[in-house]
Design a protein around this nucleic acid. Structure first.
Lengths: 136, 136
DNA sequence: TATGGACCCTGTAGCAACTACAGGGTCAAG
DNA sequence: CTTGACCCTGTAGTTGCTACAGGGTCCATA
């Protein structure tokens, strides 16, 4: 399949596919006589893996490690589990951070009573961390 | 105060202060004879506002609007409220997204039974979105 | 008086993970 | 034979910083 078909099949931007190739995340595909990239099902599966992992928030470097692992079926699965577990922990921490931030923001937003900027509680609160209840 | 003192006073990297000046978020300060930047308390307050807003996740462009507002005390506070409310909504959406992602990840991580990569459920799940319960 | 170290300056390049051109080539349908 | 959809390479932009390189300044101490 040509790059446009692959893009449609995986929901990926064409430029992104070429980008992944450039950074060595996807192998270079074959070429047609006209120098068009020509992809196989194996390419499609690999790109799906990459996209799905990206949707789950893994970094490119983590994905590189995961791909290395899946390319070598003898290797210990523990590493994949370690990468995924660490990522899960990061996501949980991010959620906790955002929850604090949300609480602080809703406290600030709730203080608006209309009026002019000079009396604005929102602007006042942004200038003064001392008004916060958490240390974001 | 010199840039290093301002940096310490606000918990900001020196390079970041110069960056904010370069992009017009902070006004150019006066200079000493030796061409060192020289800051006033007004500068310090403005930088604190910027840093605090960044900690709360506002983008530079949002902060620019908020600063414009606070520079013009006649203007209507509603705009500040609108910016903050929209940001709050974005934070809430991000939290919801990450929560889905966390659920999916913990489902995937929980499937690891050890063994070799060829049998790895984690790697298998990453390659196959069909195994997911949500559409992240 | 020299010198060392802490501080400051400008300008540029790097990070992540793409995205968006510009300026060209290829191919099939009408 | 032209039109439009597709493809190519290479480079530059995005966000919000951060990290140099290669210099200048200032002040205390030997």
């Amino acid at each position: 399949m040509k790059i446009g078909e692959l893009a449609r099949a995986t929901g990926t931007n064409i430029e992104t596919i070429r980008y992944y190739e450039r950074i060595g995340l996807l192998p270079e595909p074959g070429r047609t006589d006209a120098n068009y990239r020509s992809y196989s099902d194996a390419h499609r599966a690999r790109l799906s893996f990459v996209r799905h992992s990206r949707e789950l928030g893994f970094t490119i470097e983590e994905i590189r490690s995961l791909l290395d692992l899946s390319d070598d079926p003898e290797r210990d699965c523990a590493e994949a589990d370690r990468i995924a577990s660490r990522h899960l922990a990061q996501v949980e921490e991010k959620i906790a951070q955002l929850a604090l931030l949300r609480d602080e923001l809703s406290r600030i937003v709730g203080r608006c009573r209309g009026g002019v900027a000079a009396d604005c509680r929102v602007i006042e609160a942004l200038g003064d961390h001392g008004q916060c209840e958490t240390s974001h």
